[in-house]
Design a protein around this nucleic acid. Sequence first.
DNA 1: ATAAAGTCTATTGGTTCAGTCGAGTTTATG
DNA 2: CATAAACTCGACTGAACCAATAGACTTTAT
Lengths: 166, 166
Amino acid sequence: MKISQKGLYALQAMMMLARRHHQGAIKIRDIAYEEDLPEKFLELILLELKNARMVESVRGAKGGYQLRREPSEIHLAEIIRLIDGPLAPFGDAEQLRVLIGRDLPHRALYQVFLDVRDAAARILEHTTLADLIREPGPRSGKSKRQRGQKREAGSILPMVVGSKSD
Amino acid sequence: MKISQKGLYALQAMMMLARRHHQGAIKIRDIAYEEDLPEKFLELILLELKNARMVESVRGAKGGYQLRREPSEIHLAEIIRLIDGPLAPFGDAEQLRVLIGRDLPHRALYQVFLDVRDAAARILEHTTLADLIREPGPRSGKSKRQRGQKREAGSILPMVVGSKSD
DNA sequence: ATAAAGTCTATTGGTTCAGTCGAGTTTATG
DNA sequence: CATAAACTCGACTGAACCAATAGACTTTAT
């Protein structure tokens, strides 16, 4: 799964709307300005998010966009699937399961692909916009971890300084 | 990370060479025929794999390609990085670490991206061609799991029949 | 010599990506 | 009720990338 520039913009816009969830409709222009996104392109993205019923629009003067659900009810996987397609690194999960069943010489390979997609899904289907908008800055060393959610797992692991892993 | 058709071809070709690792150089034509890959395109891919020192070529009549290392020493991540780039779903690991350090409003988002790439890396950097070429068919219900390697983890999990997960 | 094989550069047709334009519709407000 | 602010929607574009092909060239076994 590759996240495109458009996908990143969508995620940024949704984070911004989540941060201002209490403030009613936010103008496209304000989102574009604050997140530094191309306005016309953002317009297109918000339209898609609206058709997918993740946000709603208010038309006319004083209009704008707002989330249709609580930030804690919007998972990153939804947004990414909408804009960039399936989470699997090749094809989609259903297709991979078929290939694992039919293509004997390559089934082990497709099983690895499916394992990778499952690992990504486990993360992205459990992380919500609400998870992303707490602790805006690095202040306050210990922030309370609510409900045993994962998060920060990667950053706790010992990290070699010049790892150059990619 | 998205695996392209070209990336899949590369993985298939490498699996085929791993299966015949004992047989010396294999002709491009034979690989193309047996794996059903476009011959001229495969030629290009093998050249790249050669420049990356994963395979070596023998020129002239009786020539062909063969692995340069044992199948158990060739990790899927190497092949995928060569053909399709970094494992991260956006940018690469180094870049993400910089963004996590600098882009405070979005650091949580980039951390999730990094978690996804780490999850993929854990799988793809530990799976080798040797892992893929054992048990060609579904025969022999129990195959010996060597050295506590993961594998098959996904397929053991309870799977809802009509999951439609992507 | 020559046929069989890999090497290498160029090119092509198609698709996706990132983004722009502009005409249209809706609505708050004076 | 005029109008400006805002969303809606379809068309379009240039660049990059993808999958694949073509063809000339070099190397080597026999």
